[in-house]
Design a protein around this nucleic acid. Structure first.
Lengths: 225, 225
DNA sequence: GTTTTGAATTCTGTCGACAGTCCTCAGTCT
DNA sequence: AGACTGAGGACTGTCGACAGAATTCAAAAC
């Protein structure tokens, strides 16, 4: 234990390990755009910059590789994954599969969905600010997935959002910046509320998928449900 | 570089790293049932048994944790994950989401699906042998996912099958052992062929989901598509 | 001017070591 | 007898070191 734990008081809960810390930091660097896709990542450099040794950094990089944010071949450095627009259709399909399953599960169980309203609110509040709009958009969709109460779905969906953020960082593509964010999500929300009330998820599923596919600019990659 | 590489000839292609080797071996031990769920895994012991040092073993364990086969808390050993029957519904939902998306994608693209026939064949050949039947069953479904041509889907589906195998190892649950494996899969196969011909995946999706849910013993966790 | 070559440097993969924490288990107290 | 306590050993988290492969860069050849 060498790194600076700035909490001198009672830090009972072990501030997780250096591996988790390194993972968070490197992931942050990538997703904040401070390191561009294709950049080479040398574990020794990263370890130096973070003031820790290479072992935890290596484990963190291995995890990032597993979740698709970095790539590597044997005896060769890690590189930040380069996700072109060509990867968007697959990501869109996976996202549809996950979110639609979340919607179905919520409806099947009759889960209350009011917690989504605050994100509609937020979308309205930040209307016009693309940055904040995208964040609220993402939060809305993550919240739906969370409501399904499926921990493994949560996990893989969050990996998916990371990869989508990475696609946007290539710069050749950008979606969802329309000014219709509020309206579009309001439709989804009301459809979900209806579906929970009636117990029939079909219309909500249809709308949800249409929303995702058009939002990501690939409306034609799937037959309508 | 200390471990025995038993290939003395021209091993040009680096036989991957010790991390991958450790990952494969430990995963094998778990899924073959040689280590029961809940068992404590000490990296030092594993490293000793494999004749390598702890570093690669630790990275491998970290990866296994990420894919859900082992669990751990800080400063505490890894343990083989204990997946009860209570985890089956979530796994079934995730499996439905993935396989149904694979079917839709195949139909949308008109991908040829003849490669599935050989697994129907195999199912007929091994009829009566539960072991081999389960293997052919799994192979059939993996092949469908592979046919969708989505690398990320492949990856996460294979993680899913690992977890399903782990559930079976608790011993409290067992599915799919009916003698109807051949018939059931033949129906799926023919429906998929039809769907590809007509371009309408709906009936195939319905049947597929029904097959998965009943096969895993949770027929009622989703409204029929 | 461009390409090739080869040595120096850098980086990765793996190892052994050390400090701190957790677990074990025998001994003690109620 | 059962619960508590406290050494003692065992295991994890992290580090620095070393060998081998990859990258770099400058000099030489075309």
């Amino acid at each position: 234990m060498a790194a600076a734990d700035p909490a001198p008081g009672l830090s009972l809960i072990q501030t997780s390990s250096l591996v988790d810390e390194a993972y968070r930091q490197i992931r942050g660097l990538i997703l904040e755009g401070q390191l561009k896709p294709g950049t080479r990542l040398k574990d020794s450099v990263l370890a130096d910059e973070m003031g820790i040794s290479r072992s935890p950094v290596r484990e963190a990089l291995r995890l990032l590789e597993h979740s698709g944010l970095v790539e590597k071949s044997v005896n060769r450095s890690y590189r930040i994954s380069v996700l072109d627009p060509g990867d968007v259709p697959e990501l869109a399909r996976l996202r549809c599969a996950d979110e639609v399953m979340a919607v179905r599960t919520i409806v099947q169980r009759g889960t209350p969905v009011e917690s989504l309203a605050k994100w509609i609110e937020e979308l309205r509040r930040v209307d016009g600010d693309p940055e904040a709009g995208a964040a609220a958009d993402a939060a809305f969709h993550s919240e739906v997935v969370r409501l399904a109460g499926m921990p493994r779905l949560d996990l893989r969906y969050s990996g998916l959002t990371d990869q989508m953020r990475l696609v946007l960082l290539t710069g050749d593509v950008s979606w969802g910046s329309g000014g219709v964010l509020v309206d579009s999500h309001t439709v989804l929300y009301e459809a979900l509320v209806d579906a929970v009330r009636t117990g029939d998820p079909r219309e909500a599923m249809r709308l949800w998928e249409f929303h995702i596919l058009t939002g990501m600019g690939v409306p034609d990659i799937l037959e309508p449900l």
